[in-house]
Amino acid sequence: MKSASKRYAVCFSLLAALLLILFALNLFFGSIRVSAAEFLQIVSGSSDNVTAASIINGIRLPRALAAALLGGALSVSGFLLQTFFNNPIAGPFVLGISSGAKMTVAFAMIIFLGAGKTMSSAALITAAFVGSMLSLGFVLLISVRVKKSSLLIVSGVMIGYICSAITDFAVTFASDSSIVNLHNWSMGSFSGIDSGDVKAVSAVVFTALTITFILSKQIGAYSLGEVYAQSMGLNIRLFRTVLILLSSILSAVVTAFAGPVSFVGIAVPHLVKSLFGTAKPQVIIPASFLGGAAFCLFSDLVARTVFAPSELSISTVTAVFGAPTVIWIMLRRKSER
């Protein structure tokens, strides 16, 4: 009992420290390097290096904040979906939810840009949410008919492909100016996020996260299986609806601003569970958020700097680190059963 809470404390400190370090590195490194001393000057407003100041304030800070917030949201969303479907490799990307959001956002963008308007943050999030719910609706329909979890994943992947195909189709026939915008975004990237977006993102993410955390007791009960959850007094139908809405909102926000990002939702919750040695939602929800934030900051740093000036898409990096994790998870589960 005592040793468990000690372990949690150590792990939380570790994650927080990692997050801070990665956050700082994201601010310091890039096309121009900023030292810690310069950074402090910029933040305090006493720096006369205008270029550096505008890069930090206008580009790197919002980008790093977005990477952290969205990464956290993505992995919490993954944790919720794994709980909901009782499937260790469920996640917003695998189940086609990200692709669904991508599709509706692409359509919305084409329509808005065609009319010569830019999309507001709220409009982006709404479009992504509609797309998420659309894909998830299909996955749910299938999950009612077939209980086998492997089939669920297959149908999710297929829905993802269909949505991507439709998106590609739309992008191919969109006017030139739209394509440039869409192309970067549909590959997945944290670039081009401004401080206004960050405010919108943090408002949505923190609201959803708070509700999720408050529900951790129910999530824990639900994860024991429906029979026992119900005998513990949980209203299964209501709870399932809330769970689906929360995970959709969280992954929709990510897709709206950063496009589809793969593997974070699957890999991070599992890594965090192994690290903490527990699956208690009270611990794993905040820990997944921190872990996802750190993972995305790290991935974005790699994406930006390793092949600079070329920039990799964020999914390229998350897949390289996330996909082996998924294989490891499946192997380990097989040996455990």
């Binding site: 009782n86 408050i214 951790s216 007791k217 824990g220 009960a221 994860s223 024991l224 299986g225 029979v227 026992y228 513990m232 007094g233 569970k273 040695g277 527990t278 699956a279 009270q282």
Partner: peptide
């Protein structure tokens, strides 16, 4: 007869879930 699905839970953790209806919002 349904098996309870647990992940990284000790036997004591499983027994504790019986107190669920009596604990507060954070369990």
């Amino acid at each position: 007869t349904e098996r309870m699905e647990t992940e990284l839970m000790t036997c004591a953790d499983v027994v504790k879930t019986g107190r669920y209806p009596y604990t507060g919002q954070l369990g």
